[in-house]
Design a protein around this nucleic acid. Structure first.
Lengths: 231, 231
DNA sequence: AAGATAGTGTGTGAAAATTACACCATTAAA
DNA sequence: TTTAATGGTGTAATTTTCACACACTATCTT
């Protein structure tokens, strides 16, 4: 009763756009390729999906092998399926993004030989990337820009304890626009999912700011209904 | 200088969730399968991507072959890549949706033998579908529900000339909620992209409503900035 | 022709959210 | 003690959202 599948087979891969936030700048993780094609070019971390792993699992594995980053919470955002994306054959790619705390991570460093190194690069002034990776990046960037307004992704980029100014500067970096300080704070606090800590910023040479924490439980409670649908 | 790609090859397919609106109900297009596996089951129109076509092209071709519908404007929304989605091997699927005017179309009817017939089915009370198609449908439905609020997708489902009541009932069907008539009309008209025609509904046994048209050009002008951010 | 039927079309006030806008307070370093 | 740098705060005007009810019109029925 086994019926063989027709055999239009294609190579199937994953590319990752990993965002981080550091020194008031939004950055992504790039690798320097050590293999043809595009040897020595900069590229998004990406590789081929194996037969016996789901694409979500593949995304985590590939990111780990190319950068050393583990247990990222990755989210698929688009699939790129033009015929000539890859010079050596038909390759269809699912692109994923993740948002991480740069400071919370130890040095990034490839495990396999396919990448020579991995490093953070500001999203402004990105160089040309291998394959269609510039387009993939742009699509992913647009996606998180959109989602910033209706998903709590900002808090994945900040340290666990953060100041309102840091939060604002993250919004400004992602949206590329200036926001009004008083309105921003009023609005953020009005949601009720930020927990004010009894702690202040340390090591600054000016008045230390209060630290806040994102309260995921409260967030879920507040947005339970709206969250799933629309906006 | 040709370097062979590693050979983790997979079968790659497309499934389509085609939405239509008729008699105040939101519907999708299903086929009855004529092939193993899941022979005789109801399923979303879907098939395998060929080597030399982009996934967007494949989506259009496959929909045509299974339903006879042509030149749909299809939009990718998610890729399904679990290992055991297909009983006969590894199949990764990109899911697409499209929104069409049911009345504007002639009868739907499969061209190939893979489907026995194709027909519209209300999204409420969908039967069990083949493979993971129920999940694919649900994901797509959530997606358009979301997009209804920031993309002009409602007008793809309505006839070119429509009444405000029709528009409202479409919103109500997609969002599964009642809306207030006066507020709805006020808001829609306030956008300024609905053009009131010098024409009225015909063939109704009560006061005929004014007809409106969606003015795509005005829409683009008004939402120029927000529009381009992804999706 | 009168009445029944069914859907069309319209306005207002209250509440909530958004926007614009400027100055004093605190800390560490010089 | 002064300076440099950022933290932290309130109010008024405007816009948007929401809740809410009834008279009008075309057709059909008798």
């Amino acid at each position: 009763m086994e019926v063989k599948l027709p055999t239009f087979e294609s190579v199937f891969s994953i590319d990752c756009v990993i965002f981080g936030f550091e020194a008031g700048e939004l950055k992504i993780l790039l690798i320097e390729r050590n293999e043809e094609p595009f040897k020595d070019w900069l590229a998004l971390p990406g590789y081929i999906v194996e037969q016996d792993e789901s694409i979500d699992d593949a995304a985590e594995r590939i990111l780990y092998e190319l950068t050393g980053l583990r247990d990222m919470h990755m989210q698929q955002f688009h699939t790129f399926g033009e015929v000539n994306r890859h010079p050596q054959g038909r390759v269809i790619t699912v692109a994923y993004y993740a948002l991480i705390r740069i400071n919370g991570q130890k040095e990034v460093r490839p495990i396999t030989q396919y990448a020579r190194k991995a490093f953070w690069h500001p999203v402004n002034e990105l160089p040309k990337l291998a394959f269609d990776h510039s387009e993939i990046f742009q699509t992913g960037f647009n996606k998180i820009r959109r989602r910033l307004n209706y998903q709590p992704i900002a808090f994945e980029l900040l340290p666990e304890k953060f100041t309102l100014t840091q939060l604002q500067s993250l919004y400004e970096a992602v949206l590329s626009m200036k926001l009004d300080k008083r309105n921003f704070r009023k609005k953020m606090l009005s949601y009720g999912f930020l927990k004010e800590l009894d702690e202040k910023q340390k090591g600054v040479s000016y008045r230390a700011a209060k630290l806040y924490k994102f309260d995921r439980r409260k967030y879920a409670k507040i947005f339970h209904n709206d969250l799933n649908l629309d906006k």
